[in-house]
Design a protein around this nucleic acid. Structure first.
Lengths: 149, 149
DNA sequence: ACTAACCCTACCGACTAAGTAGTGTTTATA
DNA sequence: TATAAACACTACTTAGTCGGTAGGGTTAGT
């Protein structure tokens, strides 16, 4: 799996909205400023997230976005799959795999890719945005720098 | 981590040469045929692998490639890093990370990416091409189809 | 000398990522 | 009801990468 800017932005946007869950509407501009994301690009991403049912919005003056689900019910993996596609080191599912795996090698690497995929899924499908909010607040409270290199 | 065709081809080429380890020279054409890789593309890949010290070659008629190291001393991770770059879900090492991680989010996702990276490395840095050869032969001997969907 | 093989560089078409730009459409509120 | 703030949508752009091709150059066995 690889996280592109698009996916990274989406995760940050959902985190931002999770931190404002049940606190009213949040304007795109606010998210863009706080998370340092180009606003017009963010606009498209939020639209996609809304299309997938994660966000609701209100148009017009005083409008904005808000989370359509509880943060604890959104797992990181959902957002990653939505933005990046399947979580697997190789695009090797059923039919399309046969193109890569010929008779000779008999796809001897496949079990490894499956292993990596399931380990990765074990991480991203376990963690919710409620967890991330908790981490975020803990970190800010304690002013920890341990996560920085 | 994501495996591109280039990386996939490199792994297959090294596997092929591992299966012929200490059995003389192997022509590019043979590898290309067996592994179903476009020969001119494979040529470039083998050149890169040679440049990195994994292969030796003999030019001229009756020439060919051969492995420069024992299969058991080559880990998959080495080849993957060589062809694909660093194994990490995010290009987020030291300085370059600061571009993605601003004050607001304080890179709250980073520990997860590190987790995934180390799990992935735990797989690819543990397995050698000697292991893959063993798997390959076991599979061919038993005519197992369990790895195919 | 001839030819089989590796060596090297350049090029190319298609695709994607990461935006930008511009124009609609809706709604609160003065 | 005019206005402005905000989301909605579509189109375009620009740079880079991926997955190759093409075409010689060089070396070495016969």
């Amino acid at each position: 799996m690889k996280i592109s800017f698009r996916g990274d932005y989406a995760l940050k946007a959902i985190l931002d909205l999770s931190l404002h869950y049940n606190k009213g509407l949040v304007r795109i501009q606010e998210i863009a400023d706080r998370q340092d994301i180009p606003i017009k690009y963010l606009e498209q991403i939020l639209l996609a997230l809304k299309g997938a049912g994660y966000l609701n919005s209100q148009r017009g003056a005083k409008g904005g976005y808000y989370l359509a689900k509880e943060p604890k019910k959104i797992k990181l993996g959902e957002i990653i799959r939505l933005m990046e596609g399947p979580i697997s080191p190789i695009t090797c599912v059923s039919k399309s795999c046969y193109k890569r795996c010929n008779e000779e090698t008999k796809c001897v690497f496949r079990p490894l890719w499956n292993k990596i995929r399931s380990l990765t899924e074990g991480v991203v499908d376990q963690v919710s945005f409620a967890d991330m909010c908790r981490d975020y607040e803990t970190k800010n409270k304690k002013k920890l720098d341990m996560y920085y290199i």
